[in-house]
Design a protein around this nucleic acid. Sequence first.
DNA 1: GCGACAG
DNA 2: ATCTTGTCGC
Length: 224
Amino acid sequence: MLYKKLHDWNISPKKAIDIQSTLKKLLKFEKIEKEISLVAGVDLSFFKEYGLAVIVVLDYDFNIREIVHHVEKVSYPYIPGLLAFREGPIFIKAWEKLKTDVDIVFFDGHGIAHPRKLGIASHMGLWIEKATIGIAKSKLIGNYKEPGKKRGNFSYLEYDGEKIGIVYRSRNNVKPIFISPGYLIDLESSLKITKSFITKYRLPEPTRLAHLYTQKIKKEHLSS
DNA sequence: GCGACAG
DNA sequence: ATCTTGTCGC
């Protein structure tokens, strides 16, 4: 698939923060009316000095339509708030290999629930010009009330007096997931669409399957 | 200065 | 994210 190269990746943390502050101004959020038919889930795993990105495409019936992956040396450390600079360049290489045109992309990490409103989901949404949703397993910033213990219970993640995400209990008695809009989608639509892709597991299928393949493909690489 | 801190 | 087996609980 095509994408816009908005900047270089090999830059200092200070410049990376400047870029985030600049790109944040380009974000747009809309209510999704159209029925979603094809979605993609993205996840990465690491081994040795390499990073492996996997993109899984699913249709509305959870059938896998396409899977692509890309492996390359990691060139950026993990710094809270700058995750996109570590995983973004590897994800983009996998994205180049993707042939299916999807409606929405789920990322492992936050969207606007970020210090500069530019978590990896929002950041990459601008590059690929697609609607994106951030699905994180823990919070980066913000405050929230612990949601009820039952599946479906939720509360809002707030920061600077604004609702930036939803803390959603996807299964009974399990840690909640943090859903936040990435790009071209609003909070309400993000929750609705994410819920439609959650079955019997904590994570929505696109993200869950991407993670599964990330581990599987990594093992194949280590044993051959 | 202290605590927090996506993956 | 990653190093790692069994085990408690729904």
